[in-house]
């Protein structure tokens, strides 16, 4: 099987992301240049726009919410369950589970990752690495949103003949939290929808769904 076929899911989403970023840049530039013309100025270039704080904050505010969504889904599904959902495990397995069930330490198989066999700090970190990295990406992109949003918001304030804010003041500002919450609510709705709809609905051939003939009450079954 060729490289493209083996990695088609990742490659497809990376291409979609690149296309969407270009689309966002072109649409944002057109919007910005409408305002430039209203000011009696020439249009700005694509390069100027994609290096501006307003483009950066629009990108970062969406990234942080996506990473938060996956961070929470990964960590909360350790303990919280939804009977009948392929996104959940069986209620009796709630929690971090035993070393035997997780195939770590002396229960590791020959083909298990080295850090799963290692135990100690390495084993502890590797056992939570997916959630930790998603959480770290969330913190980094949320911080980037706060810095880029601070710069963009201060530019808007000066345009309204108001004084600029310190970063601390911006962190407590309505703009910071409006941008944050409007992204969070949509991510939480999407996860809740996926968890619940996948109890009763099917997508033949997709591992995100239960097999078409699986009973509605079957949990932790992927097609």
């Amino acid at each position: 099987m060729g490289f493209l076929r083996r990695n088609s899911l990742t490659l497809c989403f990376l291409l979609l992301m690149a296309g969407a970023l270009v689309g966002q840049a072109l649409a944002g530039l057109a919007d910005r240049n409408e305002r430039q013309r209203a000011e009696g100025a020439d249009a700005i270039s694509l390069g100027e726009y994609v290096t501006s704080a307003s483009y950066a904050v629009d990108v970062a505010e969406n990234w942080q919410s996506e990473y938060l969504q996956f961070f929470l889904l990964i960590f909360l599904t350790v303990w919280l369950v939804q009977r009948g959902s392929p996104e959940s495990k069986e209620p009796r397995r709630a929690g971090a589970e035993s070393d035997e069930e997780q195939r770590v330490g002396r229960h590791a198989a020959a083909d298990s990752p080295e850090w799963a066999r290692a135990g100690g700090l390495r084993g502890l970190v590797f056992s939570r690495s997916l959630g930790l990295v998603m959480g770290a990406f969330f913190v980094l992109s949320w911080t980037a949103q706060s810095v880029a949003g601070w710069a963009a918001h201060n530019s808007d304030r000066l345009a309204r003949y108001e004084d600029d804010l310190s970063w601390g003041e911006y962190l407590a500002s309505p703009d910071m939290w409006n941008r944050t919450f409007q992204n969070w609510q949509s991510e939480f709705l999407a996860v809740a929808s996926m968890v619940v709809l996948s109890i009763y609905l099917r997508q033949r051939g997709s591992p995100e769904s239960k097999p078409v003939g699986a009973p509605h009450g079957a949990t932790d079954v992927e097609g």
Binding site: A41, D42, S155, Y161, D164
Partner: peptide, 25 residues
């Protein structure tokens, strides 16, 4: 002098001035 993107604010004596950086101007 405070510069944020294409906007700036500065004090000129007692006066406060707001500026805009316009492409081509």
């Amino acid at each position: 002098v405070r510069v944020w993107g294409d906007r700036a604010r500065l004090r000129a004596g007692e006066d406060t001035v707001f500026l805009v950086r316009l492409s081509g101007l």
